[in-house]
């Protein structure tokens, strides 16, 4: 169901997200962030919550964060997921299930 996909950039205040399918139904996150000391737990939680909302598991998520704000991270992740699932998003609201 899920392919590999990516979204975002490595530029300042943005985030580069890669998503790859893995065996099983775990969510593996590799996070590296220029603001990791302060926010790494928060970013990881945001990613897990967003994936849960979208009903996505069995993925490896690679996150290169350059100090993006939380809504940027969420938007980039949603985009990566939609690309991975080749579906069109329903933007707005929380019904972003795929």
């Amino acid at each position: 169901m899920i392919n590999s996909a990516h979204a975002g950039t490595l530029e300042s205040s943005d985030v580069y997200i890669q998503i790859n399918p893995i065996e099983g139904d775990k969510v593996e996150i590799d996070l590296s962030s220029s603001v990791a000391e302060l926010y790494d737990d928060m970013i990881e939680e945001l990613i897990r919550d967003t994936l849960k909302e979208m009903n996505i598991s069995g993925v490896h998520i690679n996150v290169q964060d350059k100090g993006a704000l939380d809504f940027v991270i969420k938007a980039r992740l949603q985009t990566a997921v939609f690309r991975a699932c080749e579906t069109k998003p329903t933007w707005g609201g929380t019904q972003n299930e795929v």
Binding site: H6, L10, E11, S12, Y16, Q18
Partner: peptide, 21 residues
Amino acid sequence: QGLILKVITHLLNAALVRNRN
């Protein structure tokens, strides 16, 4: 000026769309 970040972003994109992860 962060130009290299642009270059790497585009190279990563070029690689990933060719399924090279």
